[in-house]
Simulated scan of single mutants.
Amino acid sequence: MSGYVVVVERDDSGGYSTWSPDLPGCVAAAAGYDECVRLMTEAIDLHLAGLRADGDPVPPPTALAALVVPAA
């Protein structure tokens, strides 16, 4: 199964934002982590539906894996 990598970041106020390197402009933000991920899942679905409706190509997921590298 493949899917789109989503980067989740915490902002200075303690909220969360997400974005995907494969889907420029597809973003979500929320006060809580779970809500942010849920909103991003919905945003991806809507983004892809919009691309299809407009006859634009749907970019394939490019990431094979995602990991967090600890800071030195």
Rank of each mutant, 00 (worst) to 15 (best):
residue 13 S to W: 00
residue 18 T to R: 02
residue 54 D to E: 14
residue 45 D to M: 02
residue 28 A to D: 07
residue 48 L to W: 02
residue 54 D to P: 00
residue 67 L to W: 10
residue 31 A to R: 10
residue 47 H to E: 08
residue 40 M to N: 02
residue 34 D to Q: 13
residue 5 V to W: 00
residue 53 A to C: 05
residue 62 T to H: 08
residue 7 V to R: 10
residue 7 V to K: 05
residue 71 A to V: 13
residue 36 C to R: 03
residue 23 L to G: 01
residue 4 Y to V: 12
residue 70 P to T: 12
residue 69 V to A: 13
residue 63 A to S: 14
residue 36 C to G: 03
residue 69 V to W: 08
residue 64 L to F: 04
residue 9 E to S: 14
residue 9 E to C: 04
residue 32 G to F: 08
residue 31 A to E: 13
residue 11 D to C: 06
residue 6 V to I: 15
residue 63 A to E: 11
residue 16 Y to G: 01
residue 26 C to Y: 01
residue 13 S to E: 13
residue 22 D to G: 06
residue 19 W to C: 10
residue 50 G to S: 13
residue 44 I to M: 10
residue 64 L to D: 14
residue 2 S to D: 14
residue 23 L to T: 03
residue 5 V to G: 07
residue 61 P to G: 08
residue 27 V to I: 15
residue 44 I to S: 09
residue 27 V to R: 03
residue 28 A to C: 04
residue 57 P to G: 11
residue 71 A to I: 08
residue 63 A to K: 02
residue 3 G to R: 10
residue 42 E to D: 15
residue 16 Y to C: 02
residue 61 P to H: 07
residue 72 A to M: 06
residue 49 A to H: 06
residue 40 M to D: 03
residue 33 Y to F: 15
residue 5 V to T: 13
residue 48 L to Y: 05
residue 8 V to S: 05
residue 68 V to H: 12
residue 10 R to W: 00
residue 71 A to T: 12
residue 43 A to Q: 11
residue 47 H to N: 06
residue 46 L to S: 10
residue 1 M to L: 09
residue 3 G to H: 05
residue 17 S to I: 00
residue 34 D to K: 11
residue 61 P to S: 10
residue 32 G to Q: 12
residue 22 D to S: 09
residue 23 L to I: 09
residue 54 D to S: 12
residue 31 A to K: 09
residue 8 V to F: 05
residue 18 T to K: 02
residue 72 A to I: 05
residue 36 C to N: 15
residue 23 L to H: 06
residue 59 P to S: 12
residue 61 P to M: 06
residue 63 A to H: 08
residue 4 Y to T: 11
